[in-house]
Simulated scan of single mutants.
Amino acid sequence: MAEEPGGAGQGADGLAQAWNALVATARRTVADGLVVGTSGNVSVRIRDTVLVTPSGVPYDELTPDDLVAVGLDGEQSAGTLTPTSELPMHLAVYRATPARAVVHTHAVHATAVSTLVPELPLIHYMAAALGGPVRVAPYATYGTERLAENVLDALKGRTGCLLQNHGTLTYGDTLAAAYDRTAQLEWLCRVWLTASAHPHHTPKLLTRDQVREVEEKLRGYGQQG
């Protein structure tokens, strides 16, 4: 069976491999300070199956036997643990975008920025890695369809967004790509907050044209072939 964009095939071995990668990514969000306790969640799509972190279980306690899987309709197809309360948001992203992995965090700097502006100012050209200026999805109660709708609006033309008074969401072709965008977004927010904190200076910002130019360059970035 050919490997799926999410990182594994859909057979039992492929799902187990994807689950292990998902758990490793979830643990990384804690180790890197992007979430505290069991906040935040991670998912990966293998064809029409979505593996997702369970609700309220510390990531360091998850084992291969704790695999949680749902269909795109939200019906649980594997596992006995309850899926994350943010399942509606994850499924909405998979239905509306080419995402194969989603990472949601409560990162400190990103959450702080989400309370201050409707869009992250263009403080650095790496905004291009997220598709351009990062929008803030208006606040809605966690786990609701309204929040999922707000996130989809904020994600139009983007691979990441901020959630007002809540955190971040990013997606990618793989867990590694989704996680990298999460880390980049938190770093961008930290840079803007740091620059904005100076009492006698206003940060210089980039123009949208400057960021679009970087988007073009990033399409050919790295090892090609």
Rank of each mutant, 00 (worst) to 15 (best):
E4T: 13
E4K: 09
P5S: 10
G6V: 00
G6Q: 01
G7D: 12
A8I: 00
A8V: 12
G9K: 08
Q10G: 13
Q10P: 15
G11I: 01
D13P: 01
D13Q: 01
D13W: 01
L15H: 07
L15R: 13
L15P: 01
L15N: 05
A16Y: 03
Q17T: 04
Q17K: 08
A18V: 03
A18M: 09
W19M: 11
W19L: 01
A21I: 02
A21T: 03
A21Y: 10
L22Q: 00
L22D: 05
L22Y: 08
A24H: 12
T25N: 06
T25P: 07
T25I: 06
R28P: 01
R28Y: 02
T29D: 10
T29H: 00
T29K: 07
V30Q: 10
V30A: 02
V30S: 13
A31K: 15
G33W: 06
G33T: 04
L34C: 02
V35T: 12
V36N: 09
V36E: 08
V36T: 15
G37V: 04
T38S: 12
S39N: 14
G40S: 01
G40V: 06
N41T: 08
V42W: 00
S43E: 09
V44M: 12
V44G: 06
R45W: 03
R47A: 14
D48L: 04
L51M: 11
S55A: 14
G56F: 13
G56Q: 14
G56A: 09
G56K: 07
V57F: 05
P58H: 06
P58T: 06
Y59H: 05
D60Y: 11
E61L: 03
T63P: 11
P64V: 02
P64L: 08
D65L: 05
L67E: 10
V68D: 06
V68K: 08
V68G: 03
A69C: 13
G71Q: 14
L72D: 07
D73C: 03
E75V: 02
E75C: 09
E75F: 03
E75R: 15
A78M: 14
A78T: 05
G79H: 06
G79Q: 10
G79M: 06
G79D: 03
G79A: 07
T80E: 15
T82E: 07
T82G: 13
T82N: 15
T82V: 13
P83H: 07
T84W: 04
T84L: 13
S85T: 05
L87A: 03
L87I: 11
P88W: 03
P88I: 00
M89Q: 04
H90T: 00
L91A: 05
L91C: 14
L91I: 03
L91P: 09
L91G: 12
A92L: 06
V93F: 01
V93A: 08
Y94Q: 04
R95C: 00
A96Q: 12
T97W: 10
T97G: 11
P98C: 15
P98E: 05
A99G: 06
A101M: 14
V102Q: 09
V103S: 07
H104C: 12
H104R: 02
H104S: 12
A107Y: 01
A107S: 15
